[in-house]
């Protein structure tokens, strides 16, 4: 069995006690179920897992949403010859939830090669989600036409700016949907760019510190493992603009495994892929797809687990690398 465990803690003295336990289990072919109670997102656990309970009681304004990521429709290599089936399994899991999620987010790499037929297949599959709106940010595999035209035609709202970034609100929570996979520079990492950063600062200006913020972006906004490009070069300026808010949750994809970290009032989370696993940082020669026997694909990834336990400082992050 392959197991990954992480525990993160934050400092209650910073007034963060309302961010209670945040934990999730992830599984290839599933999404992660999130609930927002009192404006603070909390992961409820793996979809299909017994721990995935409906949102607590009748808390006013509470709702759930799901995060799906890295579906790579079009990928057909050994690591998973049928990525459509595993995405379908994820969607079936979402649709079987006892409480219908308000909406879904997909944190990028919907397709593998940005081909029109891949976008078509993905749209057909994702159209089966019995949730409200689907909010999608692009991964680098979705913008291989360099202009992100195909992606934007599918998923960017009309009021999206620049390369397709936008913001929206759901039940008092402000969401920022960012694009950090365009105009990448040699030797660099993910990139937000001056124009998007200026927009982000402007978007946040005037919002009350108590507004819960959720940030969606494909490549992690914290430095997970720069040696593999797992980070965003200019994220610090974005995080600086977010630090005054009491609750910031950053949801990323890209690395095909769950990782979680809390810095001050900002909680970072990466989701599992619905397509194929990638190795833990530094545990393999490269971040390429992990190959596991087909009959073990879901089971082996299904035991990945992350727990966030609040209460004591400082932040603790414990990794047990995946072993292929």
């Amino acid at each position: 069995m392959t197991r990954i465990e992480k525990a993160s803690r934050t400092d209650q003295e910073q007034g963060l006690s309302r961010r209670t336990a945040l934990s999730c289990m992830a599984w290839v072919g599933t999404g992660v179920l999130w609930t927002v109670a009192g404006g603070v997102p909390r992961s409820l656990g793996l979809i299909g897992d017994a721990a995935a309970a409906p949102p607590g009681g009748s808390t006013p304004n509470s709702f759930t949403f799901v995060q799906v990521s890295d579906s790579h429709i079009g990928f057909n290599k050994e690591a998973n010859p049928d990525v459509g089936a595993t995405l379908r399994a994820a969607i079936d899991g979402v649709n079987a939830l006892p409480v219908r999620p308000a909406f879904a987010v997909h944190t990028g790499d919907v397709t593998h090669l940005s081909k029109p037929e891949e976008f078509d297949t993905a749209a057909q599959l994702l159209g089966g989600l019995k949730t409200g709106a689907l909010h999608v940010v692009p991964g680098e595999h979705d913008v291989l036409d360099d202009t992100a035209t195909a992606f934007r035609e599918r998923y960017a709202p009309r009021d999206a700016r620049g390369n397709g970034w936008y913001s929206f609100d759901e039940a008092g929570v402000h969401f920022l949907a960012l694009v950090n996979v365009m105009d990448l520079k040699a030797g660099g990492l993910g990139n937000l760019g001056e124009e998007q950063l200026a927009w982000l600062e402007d978007d946040l200006r005037g919002r009350a510190d108590s507004t819960p913020i959720v940030v969606l972006a494909h490549i992690p906004l914290w430095s997970v493992y720069p040696e593999w490009g797992w980070g965003t070069a200019d994220s610090e300026r974005a995080l600086a603009a977010l630090r005054r808010f009491g609750s910031v949750t950053v949801l990323n994809g890209h690395i095909h495994q769950v990782m979680q970290k809390v810095e001050g009032r900002i909680a970072f989370h990466t989701a599992m892929s619905t397509a194929f696993p990638q190795p833990a940082p530094g545990s393999a020669p490269s971040p390429g797809p992990m190959k596991v026997p087909a009959d073990q694909l879901r089971r082996m990834l299904g035991v990945s687990r992350v727990e966030y336990v609040p209460g004591t400082a400082p932040l603790a992050l414990v990794d047990t690398p995946l072993i292929g």
Partner: peptide, 12 residues
């Protein structure tokens, strides 16, 4: 002629 991978820019 330096070059890189535009998907994975750490590759140079």
């Amino acid at each position: 002629y330096p070059y890189f991978c535009s998907l994975h820019p750490h590759m140079t």
